[in-house]
């Protein structure tokens, strides 16, 4: 089977299954409008847990090894301070990137 044919089968299959995942709850909510309290409590915790699970490995294990003291974690701490103080995404990214570049030079 040629690479193009394989690629398109993968695109369609992965696309359909990914849409099923994305739509799982969004398309069922009409029927789940009155969710029981405990379920709502669980759902409300998703943003904090999911975002932290995205951020932490990118800051602490960017290349696989755990680095607690390095340009990325330190730039992350600085960016976190900016985020807490301003809640401004652009400013957080700008300061975080600058801090990372500067610290990267320092750490050599």
């Amino acid at each position: 089977m040629g690479l193009t044919v394989t690629a398109w089968s993968v695109i369609v299959a992965a696309g359909v299954l990914t849409f099923a995942i994305r739509g799982s709850f969004l398309l069922a909510v009409g029927r789940l409008e009155r969710l029981p309290g405990p379920v709502m409590e669980l759902l409300r915790l998703i943003p904090a847990a999911a975002l932290a699970a995205l951020v932490a490995p990118a800051l602490l294990r960017p290349e696989g090894d755990l680095v607690l003291f390095g340009p990325r974690p330190l730039a992350g701490v600085i960016a976190l301070a900016v985020a807490v103080a301003t809640r401004n995404v652009l400013l957080t990214i700008a300061v975080g990137l600058l801090a990372f570049v500067g610290l990267d030079l320092l750490f050599g």
Partner: peptide, 17 residues
């Protein structure tokens, strides 16, 4: 290192949650 902008974005959005 623009790739680093991705976790920084989520870091900022994490704070208010």
């Amino acid at each position: 290192p623009l790739g680093f902008a991705v976790p920084l974005t989520f870091l900022c959005l994490l704070v208010p949650t």
